[in-house]
Design a protein around this nucleic acid. Structure first.
Lengths: 227, 227
DNA sequence: GTATTGGTCAATACACTGTATCGAACGATG
DNA sequence: CATCGTTCGATACAGTGTATTGACCAATAC
């Protein structure tokens, strides 16, 4: 068969370049746009113009991809300020802001140990800023602040999503869950809870987070400065 | 066609009785045994000797089933003891023990608002026990304790699973993640973190949880008793 | 310069998921 | 007895994570 009628070799389509960073960035874009459920290896691959199996040269499982995503965000999380109290407060705020930028992070935080380089760098910066608390206190103190932060942002995001799910504005919210709760409270079986919901001042998310964090930091301060 | 050669009506196989409670119990059994990933509508259905679609008469989606599972466990969670401090401590402990009995709960807690009857009953009991804190303080105080508890148990379970995953005993743990961390610390780029890991006393899970909770309760006490 | 090897990539395949659809069978109602 | 509406389960569909497999390329061995 002569050259002319022989088809060209199937063009080897230039083999899109790839790297863990590109993969993770694509996955984060998808998650930011449409939530964690929108992150599938197939979607990530097509976003990169690549076959799904190609990704397995860079990661061994989807879980590893999620780990890489979380670690990538940790690059944005650093404590600032002087003294342990400011360091811990800024750490908690940084985590919360990161979660606001990447809501899916709330689903992953605390779900598995974070041992990636950026997460470790964050821990290092925090520990370095805690020179004024004893070495034996540093770990439990940081653990407590992290635990509070993770739980608080999870609940905050959960509420935000629930509101959005009922139709995006407050009108719909009242039309769906509102009546259910109203009816439940009307039975009179939850008097203390009903009283709080009815009579207590309602705080917004920022205040709620700050107040809880203040509780915790106050408690830490009492034990750290007077051991 | 006479009776003898006419086949019996296809036996209508007695239609296994069903209820939300049976479904939820089956799902919880599966989750307790093999984790949340083992809970699929098909597996739940076959555990009940029933077709998968049958479940949709009782729930509208898998998310609803998960909500029901979480609410069912809330039936086991009640505060006890006198005074707000004991009530909150016992609440946190009850949640933690429930998570120990049902590890999958750590994956779900805080993931979406809990408005089921048992969860509301728990909230009611907590609010009722907080009569000695002002009505305006009750909500942020409970939120803070819940946030801490959720974050703390998540991390605790995450660590437990990570250890188990490396081979069930401490030997394997040292053989996999140990060297990675050792090597990372050996680079000298994480001095503060390495110092804590090397020199600080290590607390077990019980102590870590209790200390963090004490921080928080101390901080609450300071603001509640001296407003 | 040809034959062989090794390694990389993508297509196919598999087992499984949640759920929409739809025909058939039932009990209750006219 | 006929009809209706409801309920049930089989089938179907689109999508998932990943194992397998076979094709191709480049580099090595003769």
């Amino acid at each position: 068969m002569v050259v002319w009628e022989r088809p060209e070799p199937p063009s080897r389509p230039a083999l899109a370049p790839l790297s863990r960073e590109l993969i993770v960035r694509a996955a984060i874009r998808l998650a930011d746009a449409d939530g964690l459920d929108a992150v599938s290896l197939r979607k990530v691959a097509t976003a990169l113009d690549v076959g799904p199996m190609r990704l397995y040269g860079y990661i061994e499982s989807k879980e590893e991809l999620l780990d890489l995503m979380v670690d990538a965000v940790h690059a944005e999380i650093r404590p600032t300020g002087e003294g342990w109290r400011e360091a811990l407060r800024s750490l908690a705020d940084a985590v919360r802001h990161a979660v606001h930028r990447h809501e899916w992070l709330a689903d992953l935080l605390g779900g598995r140990p974070q041992l990636g380089p950026h997460a470790l760098a964050t821990s290092e910066a925090v520990m370095a800023a805690l020179g004024d608390v004893g070495i034996d206190s540093a770990m439990p103190v940081v653990s407590a602040v992290n635990a509070y932060t993770i739980g608080a942002v999870r609940r905050e995001i959960a509420e935000r999503r629930a509101e959005r799910a009922t139709g995006m504005d407050e009108k719909r919210w009242q039309a769906t869950l509102g009546p259910y709760l109203t009816r439940t409270f009307a039975t009179g079986k939850l008097p203390a809870l009903a009283a709080v919901v009815r009579d207590a001042v309602h705080l917004d998310a920022d205040e709620t987070f700050r107040i809880g964090l203040d509780f915790l930091l106050d408690g830490i301060e009492a034990r750290v400065s007077a051991p």
